[in-house]
Write a protein that binds this DNA or RNA. Sequence first.
DNA 1: TAGTGGTCTAGACCACGAC
DNA 2: TCGTGGTCTAGACCACTAC
Lengths: 265, 265
Amino acid sequence: MRRGSVGVGKAGISGGDQSRTMAGTAPDGDGLGMKPLYRQVRDTLIRRMVDGVWAPGEPLPSEMQLAAELGVSQGTVRKALDEMAAENLVVRRQGRGTFVARHDEDRILFQFFKLVPNDGVRRFPDSRVLSIGKAKASAAECAALDLVRGSRVVRIRRVRLLDGAPLLVETLSLPEALFPGLTDMEIPNNLYGLYSARYGITVARAREKLKAVAAPADDAAALGVAPGTPALLIDRLGFSLDQVPVEWRVSLCLTHQAHYLSDLT
Amino acid sequence: MRRGSVGVGKAGISGGDQSRTMAGTAPDGDGLGMKPLYRQVRDTLIRRMVDGVWAPGEPLPSEMQLAAELGVSQGTVRKALDEMAAENLVVRRQGRGTFVARHDEDRILFQFFKLVPNDGVRRFPDSRVLSIGKAKASAAECAALDLVRGSRVVRIRRVRLLDGAPLLVETLSLPEALFPGLTDMEIPNNLYGLYSARYGITVARAREKLKAVAAPADDAAALGVAPGTPALLIDRLGFSLDQVPVEWRVSLCLTHQAHYLSDLT
DNA sequence: TAGTGGTCTAGACCACGAC
DNA sequence: TCGTGGTCTAGACCACTAC
């Protein structure tokens, strides 16, 4: 019946010290900093994922093992894991176990890629890199990625094609400090998989701002349309597991053959 | 330790007969039609909301009361209600109770209105109705709203303004059978509130398709911009609690002063 | 057969809100 | 003070997967 903070146990890899307080709400003079136990468990597990204790695709310990190690009941671990499953951080499969979510094509297609062909059949567009390089971050990049002035970024510009026809042209900016050597790598179609595999960085969440604009001359040329053609401008900021902005992506999309699909739930 | 279907109890207002089978998965020869108990409870409660047993804003019976009435444990009712809260169908407040969600301005603003002014401060645009009337449904309207040919619809066309400047012009189509007499009513800014209050119809979910287009002459005139100005075309279909399409709304939006905000979670 | 997550139950204590 | 939902626990049985 021990209540209180989540135990550090044996495998307390990280600082292992974000644990605090009691369940419910602080009965002692703590004031504000308390969280329910299941949320402390969740945060502990996410911290371990950030620290690479379990890689994407790998199984977590079973509910019973985690409960024993952390000194809480199975039900509390279960509630933490259910919440993480709802956030697409883990995948649970009856009879098999709970696994760290991977950035496979299906996940990208349903969670992060909202452009759907008019026929309704989701598919992944091909990519063609136009340029890649390093530079000092612009003021806009510093603001978007929360960088100090003078930081350096990696910039990638590429065209993506659907069924062979240009769909969008986009420019990505990434903090070079987080992605060293990226410019020397082959750039795959699925970038999030690369971030995860090479740098241990998981894009867990993104925020997109959309506007309709007239395509500027250079983008129009890359897309093979007349300058001034109406296009969808998508400004996306991707956040890592620990809520740090890690990728800024500005895409200019043609919406003749596809549309942006948004579910208001 | 009774297991099985959700009891009809005493207050089985509706058909009260969608109950089936056992928890887990059909151990008998049922085949496929089974659902977990907590989902049967959820469906029962939604059915009652559809039938108007509880109006928006009203409290549901307490967990204990529902559990006793339906013949399940409090934990099962709790799981059903938690799921409904996650879907924005009910609002739970500690110490007060569980309430049927209302279409108040806040909910609309966060769940259904994704256009955010560039300053980031969400606010509700004013409306000005341009026309309202009844007509035989077009082929497109029949397809969108799942109507039989020959059905009649109510059409509303209006402009919406943000801080006094035109933001969008939109055309709504509604099945007249579901909204009799709508054309004789005053059209408020918050239409979903009207659907709920006057017709007992709750828009629980919507699906939006976005494209970038050049504004046609008539829409451009209504918005006070030059024809051909790039604009965001939003095609929205709204679904009721029981998953029936009840409103088709096509909006043409200027995105100079605002953007469409989408969270990829 | 053993172990996993999925479901269901029962009961405890807590914070919150209305009285 | 009482009733509400929020949290936590403990234990049962189930279906699914791997061995």
